[in-house]
Design a protein around this nucleic acid. Structure first.
Lengths: 249, 249
DNA sequence: CGCATTTTTGATCAAGTTCAATATCAGTGG
DNA sequence: CCACTGATATTGAACTTGATCAAAAATGCG
């Protein structure tokens, strides 16, 4: 059932049947959350590693005076911080943006995997490093890019990430975000997001209706957003090898 | 010689003599960089994990049209991505802001440590998680805070991080950054950084001259910056235990 | 259909940018 | 010790991007 995660990890390296089964087993304990509910809150003790199976979630931080920054979006296949349980308490919150099903992976199982499965461990490391790279790219986004570039960049990123887990159809994908949520993620006002979206639509770079995003010309959108996909680290040799053959140590 | 790193890690958990010696040994291979030179560039193959021993460095990303975002500052004791060698190529650059001495830790040694030294491994994980939390906080900073809050927040963070490695004197510390560098880090123009600094000085919240930052009233600065130190995860029990006693498994 | 949420529009305002000039400072060589 | 140089910091004025406020229109859903 955690096939999105498996599919994502196999962009980095092929996994063996055993590897995949270990991941399946790790994701046995399921939990569901309603739209807009908090999955974990700032200050809570992080007991499990959450793996999003279905739905979208976000990491966010709320300032004392109410301002809110969305720090990242989670889509199916995303792990919320592989080693979070080392920390005493959460420094941010995670909320469901749509109805969410996730797996709570206990620390013990994750530690067993890291002890026994080199290939999975390395793939999880890759996934962690990519998440951090995404966080850095958001910093660039907020620090340097204009509203249009920002939004275009986000759309490119989400589209490629969803494609990596098999959740795109041709040049379109789901985008179950309100303009307020986009605003909180991009550090802009919802009014300005609205106007920026109109501009993107008018120029034919994106179509967006009914929670579905279509990008007619991804190259064009990448260009105007100064989007360089290198931070997603999708170029790897290992993914073409067959992990069931006894080739690797 | 990597005493800053050791001191930092011991905020999280006490290390044994052996642990410390292993870290000393890992940092054997030294290298120096001139002010303003690149330590590693976007596109390079990351062969080593760099540990800053002396001087300040920064991670940055340059857009095609020249805009530059500084993504993080490195101070003595900071590791530049503990597992970076898993990636094929760097998605950002690292540059020396002052003359820098660093240790190039080879992958093999780091892997040995993670296999043999549970306590160090956990402490390194803690350090990694804190770095990521800092990156998230920068995202909040750029997305939500005003110029004054941003700058105040950065000063609070740097001061606490430097105090954690023993590089503060009373309520002051070095701050070898130009206003252009501050601007590139905060997503503001250098002109506005200049004016914001003046405002911070005028209100007596910081003194800044000759590369030295003084914060007369840290609480006050924290308050106006909406600074909550929880993301640095400094509250831990383990740091009071004696790691040379055979207490932990 | 009716209500709540989300999107859209218009008008005004403010934070921060840009450009360009001037002042200051830290080294450097004489 | 001083003059010279390049880098850094400071100032002023005009300008722009995006924020804010408030209202209206559209959408979605029970």
């Amino acid at each position: 059932m955690p096939h999105h995660l498996i599919r994502k990890l196999e962009q980095f390296t092929k996994l063996s049947r055993d590897d995949r089964q270990a991941l399946e087993a790790a994701a046995a304990k399921r939990r569901s959350f309603a739209e807009h509910s908090d999955i974990i809150r700032e200050g809570d003790d992080p007991a499990y590693v959450n793996l999003i199976l279905e739905g979208w979630a976000c990491r966010y931080k709320q300032l004392d005076d109410g301002r809110r920054q969305i720090l990242s979006f989670f889509v199916p296949g995303d792990l919320c911080d592989t080693h979070i349980y080392i920390l005493r308490e959460m420094d941010h919150s995670i909320a469901a943006l749509t109805p969410v099903t996730l797996a709570e992976i206990p620390r013990s199982i994750l530690e067993r995997i890291t002890n026994e499965r080199t290939r999975v461990t390395k793939a999880l490391w890759w996934d962690t490093l990519v998440s951090v790279a995404i966080q850095r790219e958001w910093t660039v986004n907020l620090g340097q890019r204009t509203a249009i570039e920002r939004l275009g960049h986000l759309f490119c990123e989400l589209f490629l990430r969803l494609r990596g887990v098999g959740l795109t159809e041709g040049n379109s994908c789901m985008l179950p975000l309100t303009q307020v949520e986009l605003a909180d993620a991009m550090g802009l006002s919802n009014v300005h997001i609205n106007r920026t979206l109109q501009e993107l639509r008018r120029s034919g770079l994106v179509a967006l209706k009914g929670k579905r995003l279509t990008i007619p010309d991804l190259d064009a959108l990448q260009k105007i957003s100064l989007f360089n996909p290198n931070y997603l680290h999708l170029e790897h040799d290992g993914r073409h090898l067959d992990a069931d053959e006894p080739t690797s140590p």
